[in-house]
Design a protein around this nucleic acid. Structure first.
Length: 349
RNA sequence: CCGGGCUUAGUAUGGGAA
């Protein structure tokens, strides 16, 4: 059976899908393909964007002598989710029960995650409750998922409620939970709650990772609490967490939104001199900061020097610069930008 | 009995619209 699967995977690998499928179908009916091999087939077909065939294999196995196992269902749920086929993913979940299998933690998390990404908060919460019945104490991962669902739906209060419930249940928040909450609070402009959260995190002696540091800095920075943002920036380096391009972009944005274009530019130079590579987003942020503070020429200089760091201007770069030209009634530069825009391989939006 | 494999969570930039 294993060699069967290897042979079939090989056919798939070299693109002989049309040869492999009929062989696979016959082998399944003969019972020559066990559950594990079926999983390999289902997975590799889905990876090759042949989800339809994965489903066919799966259905054939359900009727054949060797039934698919729980992992097969989980794989399908996952790929259906990636294809944004939310309803079908839910159907597979229920099919699992009808076929006498018990959805496990992964099945639940996978489905909750799909619903989260597709904005179905209340459904996500339903399945979360089901998960709770299954395991009693959902993991921090599950809580993070649900909190993020509410966050993406703009339901800050509900997200915080879930966080409270999590603490009542004595599930220890991890860095992902904290960083998710910092993002939600940052977007909700709730720096007070964020500060409280920071206190809790320190009290629990939770060591932030790079991404969490970035999220915290962004949270305070975007709400005008620049000092706090830089304090955390300093703390992070003292703790031996090396900032990255994202960290600097965040700080540049924070300063830019406060009109501190010169300080932002100092930081930009500092990051380059320390060997960090600005990317398009860093450049866009810096250009926007200059634009906001009316440093017209400097903004264009920065645009011109983007190739130094192998950065291609994108739709956002052009949009910032064109807006600026409009404000300055600079038709010549507008025209030149339009030429650059056409020459550049930009996906317009 | 032990071990292993496949499936699950969080970061930065513009304008417009609601």
């Amino acid at each position: 059976s294993l060699s069967y699967a290897c042979f079939l995977s090989l056919l798939l690998k070299i693109g002989q899908v049309d040869e492999a499928i009929p062989l696979a179908m016959k082998a399944i009916m003969k019972g020559s393909i066990d559950a594990n091999c079926g999983n390999i087939l289902i997975d590799s077909l889905a990876k090759r964007n042949r989800l339809d065939l994965s489903c066919k294999i799966f259905q054939r196995m359900r009727r054949g002598p060797c039934k698919p196992n729980l992992i097969a269902y989980n794989i399908l749920i996952n790929y259906l989710g990636e294809a944004r086929r939310v309803i079908q993913a839910c159907n597979i979940f229920h099919l699992m029960k009808r076929d006498g299998l018990k959805p496990d933690v992964t099945s639940h998390l996978s489905l909750i995650n799909i619903l989260r990404k597709n904005g179905k908060v209340s459904l996500a919460h339903e399945y979360f409750k089901e998960l709770k019945l299954l395991v009693g104490k959902p993991s921090a991962v599950a809580y993070a998922c649900l909190i993020d669902s509410y966050g993406r739906a703009g339901k800050e209060i509900q997200a915080l409620k879930i966080y409270d419930e999590m603490k009542e249940n004595e599930v220890h928040p991890d860095v992902v939970v904290y960083s998710t909450l910092f993002r939600i609070l940052g977007q909700a402009r709730n720096a007070i709650a964020a500060n409280r959260l920071l206190g809790e995190m320190r009290y629990k002696k939770c060591e932030p990772d790079l991404q969490t540091y970035n999220q915290m800095i962004d949270c305070f920075g975007r709400n005008g609490w620049i000092q706090k943002a830089f304090d955390i920036f300093g703390e992070m380096r003292r703790n031996g967490t090396c900032p990255d391009t994202v960290t600097y972009s965040i700080l540049i944005n924070s300063l830019g939104s406060k009109g501190e274009a010169l300080k932002a530019f100092e930081l930009f130079k500092e990051m380059v001199s320390e060997g960090f590579h600005p990317n398009v987003i860093t450049y866009n942020s810096m250009i926007k900061a200059l634009a906001r503070a009316n440093f017209y020429e400097q903004a264009f200089q920065l645009y011109e020097q983007m190739p130094i760091h192998e950065c291609q201007p994108d739709a956002i770069t052009f949009s910032i610069l064109l807006d600026m030209c409009t404000d300055h009634c600079d038709a010549k530069r507008s025209a030149r930008l339009f030429n650059d825009l056409k020459a550049a391989d930009v996906t317009p939006d």
